[in-house]
Design a protein around this nucleic acid. Sequence first.
DNA 1: GTCAATACTTTGTCATGACAAACTGACTTG
DNA 2: CAAGTCAGTTTGTCATGACAAAGTATTGAC
Lengths: 250, 250
Amino acid sequence: MTSDLTPVRPVHLDRSSPVPLYYQVATRLQELIEKGEIGVGARIENEVDLAERLGVSRPTTRRAIQYLVERGMLVRKRGVGTQVVHPKVRRPVELSSLYDDLVAGDRAPRTEVLDLKVIPASDAIATSLSLTPGTEVTWIERLRYAGGEPLALMHNAIPVDVLTVTEADLAAHGLYELLRRAGHVPRIATQVIGARSASAPEARILAEKRGASLLTMTRTAWDAAGKALEYGSHLYRASRYSFELNLSAG
Amino acid sequence: MTSDLTPVRPVHLDRSSPVPLYYQVATRLQELIEKGEIGVGARIENEVDLAERLGVSRPTTRRAIQYLVERGMLVRKRGVGTQVVHPKVRRPVELSSLYDDLVAGDRAPRTEVLDLKVIPASDAIATSLSLTPGTEVTWIERLRYAGGEPLALMHNAIPVDVLTVTEADLAAHGLYELLRRAGHVPRIATQVIGARSASAPEARILAEKRGASLLTMTRTAWDAAGKALEYGSHLYRASRYSFELNLSAG
DNA sequence: GTCAATACTTTGTCATGACAAACTGACTTG
DNA sequence: CAAGTCAGTTTGTCATGACAAAGTATTGAC
């Protein structure tokens, strides 16, 4: 009866696939929205009809829609319907590493390992990682290039029982990729982002003038079981880098 | 049979309340976890038993638990159970204003309104707010103090149909509080955080030396319906302020 | 004793059915 | 004509039932 109601046409759901039905539906909807086949502001079919046409139950349809609502792509109003709002915003905040970001952005990352050793954790690091002071951690110092220019000076401490790495590993992969490969998936992190002026040696390494503004970021990451995986203290050239965040609030 | 299984004892659910049952259950669980009555690492009762004891259905119990999982307080593993992980981390990222943060932190905020006028939106601002260039916006320039010292120089542009404010309003309240009071609830925002050196006038206003490092933050915020509410471009004294973020990833 | 197969526990997914609450729009009434 | 009422639409909440998948513990064979 309403005219701006956009029916979601061809759907191929694979019931034998290990991918959950609700996720298949959500993915399909997301594609349609991103391709613009369902324009911003348009209402989508109501749950009940959509479920019937797709041949799935209403809870399954609801779950798919809910998934996209949480990502900020859809908005629902009781008695009104479900509308497309924001095709771009996907996830609230990415828990990814600089390396992944650069690869995704075609910025030709390169990593130079300046230092790699096992040391007893200092009090500050032990506190950040919830370890007893003196526990052995791997200390990593890296210089990250993008497009041939230095971009960031990165320091990390990782408990030895979490990960053992070689220089070659670090040169070829991002730290988070190595963590994930070792079976440690970061799930929760606390970050502090600040700024300060570069000291003389920092400026030299990063090819900046002394006193240039640097972005600082310290982060501690935990896995799903609450085990601390990584402490990082990084310096970025503010002239070349900034943090982008997408927030969404319930 | 397992020993670290913590039964959730006294529960009073109000079925006549307008507050959903799943939310009542979630709130109750959250209290127990925050009070430490269910310690970190402890397993909670399995869904089926918990549901039966509470006198609610399994989906309702699941939804309550899911709610806490998304907030990073619980972790579930199929075949294993549900564990408490991180009582502190609550919400992934807060969509709040600096003023709210300062009030919450007892830092005695004060706001000085430097400029307040209605102007046609520049191209850049119009783009950020998804307006047609030339649409009238309220332009606000504020200096925020904390503990008697200048902390941030804030510039905002707000579509005139969203909010009309007086100097007195701005001096006494945070911008987000005023927005919410006017019925505009920010739900989605994109932020860019960077750094640069202070120009001479900026340094003078913020009581810093020329060339001092400043944190920059630009943000655009939208409401649930996708209407742009606010564009902000802010400067923070890096020596006094940093951004804290809690991330969680699925 | 060690390793593999089996049983058990627990969460994950999905269906069906029902009623409540919020919003819209048309209709009725003063 | 204006305002309130009422029906229709759509999402929100909740229950019950069933099976699948993953992880753990036990058992049995060699």
